[in-house]
Simulated assay, not measured.
Amino acid sequence: MNTLRLALRLIALIAALLVALPLHGMWRLFRARSPWPRRFLGWCARIVGARAHVVGTPLERDAVILANHLSWIDILLLAGATGTAFVAKGELESVPLIGWLSSLNHTVFVARGQRMAVAEQVEQLRRALAAPWPVTIFPEGTTGDGTTLLPFKPALLAALDPPPPGLRVQPVRIDYGDATSDCVWGDESGQVHALRVLRRRGSFIATLNFAEPFAPDGGRKIVAAEARRRIEAL
């Protein structure tokens, strides 16, 4: 049954892609903002078994979303709920298919760990913040265990100093509830983790708890600390 479940979910993911890609192309042909990356990623979340439960009011533009990070499923859920783009490690851009699909969703690829490149990364993010959709950063820089927040890395938040006019920061706590142990991406390879999730029986509730947004005043360290405080409070 696990093998059959995996096969059916893979077929459904391919079918969703085959529906969304031509429609996305039609929207782009007329230079219109395409809703299809957001819809496709939302569909993918449901296909892998996640049922999003949104608490609070997500911002859909002029916002930086700062969220705890548990799994690649986070990306499907947040994109489906808000239409957000993401900041991701640069290596992802060269991954076949995944890198290309990420670029369709306006992903900002950054070279993490290269201190000399931070200024360029900050400028990339500032340009991305001018777009009419939010941008999500996972400030832990890696996936956690679902129960403890890791230290936040505030380097990229220098893009908010000074903040673009009208921009706000919205912290989000992602919680997979009883499915946390199944969904958290620990020391496994991406392929092993993805296959394990796709073989998982049934569905699960994934709660996206959106905190009250705040103005990013006071510098990157203060912004990171305030976002962390609000996520911990959730």
Rank of each mutant, 00 (worst) to 15 (best):
R39I: 15
L70W: 02
A233P: 03
F30L: 15
D62R: 13
P213T: 04
S203R: 15
D217G: 12
L125F: 00
E188V: 02
F30C: 13
P162M: 06
L104M: 12
I205E: 15
P22T: 04
R112N: 11
L129D: 00
A52P: 00
W185S: 07
A15K: 04
E226H: 12
D217T: 15
L157A: 02
R51P: 00
Q191F: 14
L4N: 00
D62S: 12
L101Q: 02
A79K: 05
D145F: 06
S71D: 11
D187H: 15
M116F: 12
D62A: 11
V169L: 02
C44D: 01
P139K: 01
A12L: 13
P216K: 04
I14F: 14
A16H: 03
R126G: 03
L97Q: 06
V223Q: 06
I47E: 10
P58H: 10
F86K: 00
R9I: 02
A159V: 05
P163G: 03
L66S: 08
A7T: 13
I98G: 08
L8V: 12
K89N: 10
G144I: 11
S102V: 06
P96L: 07
V169S: 05
A63H: 07
F204N: 03
T3L: 15
L160F: 03
A131W: 02
A206Y: 06
Q121L: 04
I174W: 08
P165Q: 13
A128M: 00
A79I: 05
S103F: 00
T84F: 06
G141H: 04
G218Y: 02
R168H: 08
P165W: 04
W100R: 10
G146E: 12
T142R: 08
S103I: 01
W36S: 02
L129Q: 01
T84C: 09
C183E: 13
T3F: 13
A215L: 14
S181W: 02
R38M: 14
P96A: 03
F138E: 08
V87M: 03
E140V: 08
N68D: 09
R61K: 14
G219A: 04
A79Q: 14
F86N: 00
G186L: 11
R228Y: 07
I14V: 15
R127V: 02
